[in-house]
């Protein structure tokens, strides 16, 4: 895995998701305060910060997964390509097809490997026939670097794969709906170092087609895979900038303490 810390350069790219004064409440608990973030297209953005700082909560706001939690309330403005995603006219189901998500624990469905990947295209009607669906499944599994390992047993249950394979299957499943943004909530925290390396490599490749947002506990991982990094602390966005700058020359003393291991 190459260390991209110093060579990373962010090209001037279009803004995909824009958050302004985003607030999240769980009941009376104010979990996210005044967060302003721009997620650029074809870029990996990392959210780092100590446990409970709200980075996962904020990630789940970006595709309205927080809607499934009854006590959760989101305020402020979050837009996808200029369109407010919390507008009542927006269908969260359609939104989630455009903004895919990969979770902390691999969660393959109790179906075959093939059906796991074909799930999204099928429910959204993205393919016209079986041959096209086969093509989509194969290309997604290839993109997820899993094709060679599973091509002979596509009918085997997805739950029978190893942890790392399961997580790559979940990534294949998430990109099968061709989302514009891929949200990843600590995708490597349940994986061993080898599987982690594979997934990180994969994230770097995915960047050519998607905008990727990754929440991670590992600062090394953030440094390795991301071009831009946001540091969250106690529900506030403390610092947001190019990864190289955040790790080598943080502007906020809290960022520096966290990176050097004094808080968190």
């Amino acid at each position: 895995m190459k260390d991209q810390r110093l060579e990373t350069r962010v090209d001037t790219q279009t803004i995909k998701i824009e958050a302004r004064k985003a607030q999240v409440y769980y009941g009376t608990n104010h979990a996210i305060k005044d967060v302003d973030v721009d997620i650029l297209d074809k870029t990996v953005t990392a959210f780092i910060g100590p446990s409970g700082c709200g980075k996962s909560t904020f990630l789940r706001c970006l595709n309205r997964m927080n809607d499934t939690i009854p006590s959760c309330r989101v305020e402020g403005r979050i837009t996808l390509e200029g369109e407010d995603i919390y507008d009542p006219r927006v269908d969260p189901v359609q939104l989630r097809a455009r903004i895919g998500m990969v979770f902390q624990k691999p969660n393959p469905f109790p179906k075959s490997i093939y059906d796991n990947v074909a799930y999204g295209p099928k429910i959204h009607g993205l393919t016209r026939n079986k041959a096209e669906l086969d093509e989509v499944v194969e290309s997604c599994l290839r993109k997820a670097a899993l094709w060679n390992e599973v091509k002979d047993r596509l009918a085997a249950p997805g739950t029978g794969l190893s942890g790392g394979q399961q997580q790559r299957l979940c990534i294949a499943r998430a990109i099968a709906t061709s989302p514009e943004v891929l949200l990843m909530d600590e995708p490597c925290s349940a994986l061993d170092p080898i599987a982690t390396a594979q997934v990180e490599e994969l994230i770097d490749e995915l960047r050519s087609q998607f905008s990727v947002v990754i929440v991670t506990h590992s600062m090394q991982q953030a440094a390795r895979v991301s071009q831009r990094t946001a540091f969250f602390h106690l529900g506030n966005l403390v610092e947001f900038g190019e990864t190289g700058q955040i790790f080598t020359n943080p502007r906020d003393p809290r960022t520096e303490s966290y990176i050097s291991g004094r808080i968190g």
Partner: peptide, 24 residues
Amino acid sequence: SLRDGSLGIGATPSETIRQVVIPA
């Protein structure tokens, strides 16, 4: 996590129930 996985791809709750929760 299975429900989240399905909802996260943009499945509706009833699709999630029919295709993921009930089989499980």
